[in-house]
């Protein structure tokens, strides 16, 4: 699971002509990295992105705007879908303060899977709000931990204040088959939504 920049690269087939991406987001410790790892054909990789966020609007005495620099870790994996097309999966923290990174990441993404831990759903409010606000197509996926309470979907939907068109999926992200079914269900949902558009 640990990524290492000294790992030999696994190249894509030379016939590949381009890639698409899907984001995996959720609060800290919800299982993003595990899900990316379960789905990826290569050992998951990690990069660290430095992000500069503007501080207060008021300039300080030196005349420079105050800025803070944060480092955000990004775990990602890859699936070669056919000889021409590859899919990248980016696991990314969803909090509002990481929005500058999100802007870059979400540009061109097919959509996002928002992982939720139903034992602490309040940690997902921020992320779901961000996805809605920026009109990124998404599904909620409840990561099933051994002691996860079994809430009916409707109760969870109400608690998360989800729009009716957002599907709620469930998955044990450690299980490769379950993870793959989750991804298939998500893309199938994106496809059904696209079919309904005028």
């Amino acid at each position: 699971m640990a990524s290492d920049s000294s790992v030999e690269p696994t190249y894509l087939p030379s016939t590949v002509q381009g890639a698409v991406k899907i984001l995996v987001t959720g609060p800290f410790g919800v299982g993003k990295t595990t899900l990316v790892g379960a789905l990826s054909e290569i050992a998951p990789l990690r990069t660290e992105e430095t992000m500069t966020t503007a501080g207060a609007d008021v300039d300080d005495l030196t005349g420079r705007p105050q800025k803070t620099t944060t480092t955000v870790a990004l775990d990602f994996g890859r699936i070669t879908l056919n000889q021409h097309l590859a899919l990248y999966l980016f696991g990314t923290p969803g909090q509002q303060r990481f929005w500058p990174l999100w802007e870059d990441l979400s540009c061109g993404a097919l959509g996002a899977i928002a992982l939720v831990d139903s034992r602490r759903i309040e940690e997902s409010f921020d992320i779901l709000g961000l996805l809605e606000e920026h009109r990124i197509p998404f599904a909620v996926a409840v990561n099933v931990f051994p002691d996860t309470p079994d809430y009916p979907d409707e109760e969870l939907r109400a608690a998360l204040d989800l729009l009716p068109e957002v599907p709620i999926l469930a998955c044990d992200v450690r299980d490769e088959d379950a993870a793959r079914r989750l991804l298939i269900d998500f893309v199938d949902h994106l496809r059904s939504t696209a079919l309904e558009l005028p």
Partner: peptide
Amino acid sequence: LEEVLVGL
């Protein structure tokens, strides 16, 4: 989307 789905 269909191409991605078939691939998966």
